[in-house]
Design a protein around this nucleic acid. Sequence first.
DNA 1: TAGTGGTCTAGACCACTTT
DNA 2: AAGTGGTCTAGACCACTAT
Lengths: 232, 232
Amino acid sequence: MKFSKIKQHIYSKIASGEWPENHPVSSENALAIQFKVSRMTARRALQELADEGLVIRSKGSGTYVAPLKSQTSFMAIRNIADEIRARQHDYEAHVHVLRQVPASLQVAEQLQVEPETPVFYSVITHLENGLPVQVEERYVNPAVATDYLKQDFRQITPHEYLSAVAPLTEASHQIEAVTPSTHVCEWLELAKPEPCLRIVRRTWSDAGVVTYAVLTHPGSRFVLGGHLTFKA
Amino acid sequence: MKFSKIKQHIYSKIASGEWPENHPVSSENALAIQFKVSRMTARRALQELADEGLVIRSKGSGTYVAPLKSQTSFMAIRNIADEIRARQHDYEAHVHVLRQVPASLQVAEQLQVEPETPVFYSVITHLENGLPVQVEERYVNPAVATDYLKQDFRQITPHEYLSAVAPLTEASHQIEAVTPSTHVCEWLELAKPEPCLRIVRRTWSDAGVVTYAVLTHPGSRFVLGGHLTFKA
DNA sequence: TAGTGGTCTAGACCACTTT
DNA sequence: AAGTGGTCTAGACCACTAT
């Protein structure tokens, strides 16, 4: 597709840092000439980048690389280890489970594999200054991440490893408030059950479903935040 | 705009229930003739509806009303009344409180006004098929929305009214899991406290902070969802 | 085979911003 | 006045789906 070649070109300029925040992006007409396409095709590339929050367009003025904050922290696939370290707190991971299990009906459906297919399963708690702030129960499609069980998840998070072996193309999230199971209470070192924030996430790469994860945060120790700006 | 008239037309068909889930939507060519526009313009209307998740398009087959998941997108600032109606469920609002109150220290800080300044305060529950799914406690900067107390919030949501009088330029969110207060339990008609999803939202317009809202959802009746794609 | 959505073209006019 | 993005047109070819 012609428009996606143009998007790719602009995306690489931004990703490489060659075009920093607020740097002007080539105009529709300039791109049309440069890529030998009609203006409508160049326009589509810029429009989709704007919809994705990568650039800001202003009538009469031009198109500019978006400030990072408007790339939305909500949408970002966050890495909890990086976030904790960014707060200059100690990060630590405890690996409770790391093995192959047969897929239950529910897991099979989520991962789009046949029931009873062996899949990888891990349970890891993430600690901030020694206090568990998230338990991560994760099922992984073994066809996509064959070496999953060999990783040392005290050193690298599953998210980091999976991003490396199977670049994300798609993700879905569900956020809800729940009462934690007794298992989760133990992993989170909760003496009594308390309301927990549960994030259920499924991610895809080109090869299909990569992973199905249930992330549970104690309500007393975790807030999910975001900031959005709407600039014309 | 011509394309938005077409969107409006299709939206009303879906919202009214005239076109239920999976009902075929008029084709690009049909809409182009009906609305006396070019196919590209009709196409844009359908494309934007697809981007918003209201319709599904299949090459060679056609465009269909999307299955309505009981999920709320957390990407966009949405209107709960529209979402409930989009699911073809009954929407109803109960106004529990609507008056002026002096700003407490916390509220004054959030709204960036002096403590004890009179501010507007409302408590409204939103019901889906008669069941409360959200209680909305809201403080409003009276300088920005002078007629707030005169509105009938059974007919228009505070979000709709505020969007009209003070277009959003910025918003921040916090999402957490909490045990509801006894007040909130009453508003939500919860016999026993259960984990609730609490969304705290502050919004700005050009004139400054518009509103500070605490939205509480019963965990058993609400899931916040989102879907992202990363296309080249 | 007829209809559909997906992509693309080469123009056009407008409102807006910048110089 | 020149350039930019926003909207729109009237065609075109393609791949896909349904019949």
